[in-house]
């Protein structure tokens, strides 16, 4: 346990020292929230629900953690022999994975606190109607994205490859999640994709919690399926070196 804690402590420091990662994870969602709040006045008058903007910002922040920073970190460590070096010590390398997951969960929590806090303090945005249901939705979404991150980070050979694969997944994810086409603006024929991609399902579930609803069954199944498949494949094929 103390080994995991020591690793988590150091990994957190290293994470904080990586400016570009920090920017995308925290500044980008916060920037989106700020700009659209100032531009649109997030009051629901334009037909876009007030829950959309904070859900989108949180969805993107957590998406970048899962598709960007986590797989790049893991693939980079394997590429440079950091994991190999670790396996010659009494520590099992899986503890580094646990440390990374804890760190990314904490970063996700921070993204959520930032978005909800800044939204409610500065832009008078409504908070989720049901904190419990919001937490369930956020956890499901977070776990599915981080599982995807483990999968990518476990399979691709280099940090560069991880960043390419991550980006290739991130942008379609955002598109199908309806980041640019909230609510009814998304063409009907592809709305089903919003329900089954993890970011779409995650954002929809987060939005539901604003009006006090539980996540929709389809969304829950989609997120759990992505989690299970990702972890299953990663566990089978994860390469330590």
């Amino acid at each position: 346990m103390s080994q995991t804690l020591a690793l988590t402590r150091i990994e957190t420091k290293l994470f904080v020292r990586e400016w570009s990662g920090l920017f995308f994870v925290f500044a980008l969602p916060l920037g989106l929230l700020t700009i659209f709040s100032l531009l649109g006045g997030n009051d629901g008058s334009d037909g876009i629900p007030v829950s959309f903007l904070p859900s989108m910002a949180i969805g993107i922040g957590i998406g970048i953690l899962g598709l960007g920073t986590l797989p790049m970190m893991l693939a980079g460590y394997r590429e440079k022999g950091v994991l190999r070096r670790l396996s010659t010590t009494p520590v099992r390398p899986v503890k580094l994975l646990i440390a990374q997951l804890l760190l990314h969960l904490a970063a996700a929590a921070l993204v959520i606190v930032l978005i909800l806090g800044v939204g409610s303090l500065f832009f008078d945005a409504a908070l989720p109607g049901s904190p419990l249901r919001f937490t369930v939705a956020a956890l499901l979404y977070c776990v599915s994205q981080l599982a995807l991150g483990l999968l990518i980070g476990g399979l691709v050979p280099t940090a560069k490859a991880a960043s390419i694969v991550g980006n290739v997944l991130l942008f379609p994810s955002m598109f199908f999640a309806g980041v640019w086409t909230p609510g009814d603006l998304m063409p009907e024929s592809i709305r089903w994709l919003r329900d089954v991609t993890p970011m779409g399902a995650g954002m929809s579930s987060l939005q539901d919690s604003w009006s006090g609803g539980w996540p929709d069954g389809v969304h829950v199944i989609a997120m759990l399926a992505v989690t299970a498949v990702s972890i299953g494949v990663a566990a089978r094929f994860f390469r330590w070196e």
Binding site: K80, G81, V82, R84, T88, T89
Partner: peptide, 17 residues
């Protein structure tokens, strides 16, 4: 692993540690 200390070829540490 407690008895042997290893210095390996092509093993690095994280850049910013």
């Amino acid at each position: 692993t407690s008895l042997i200390g290893v210095q390996l070829q092509a093993s690095e540490l994280p850049e910013k540690i």
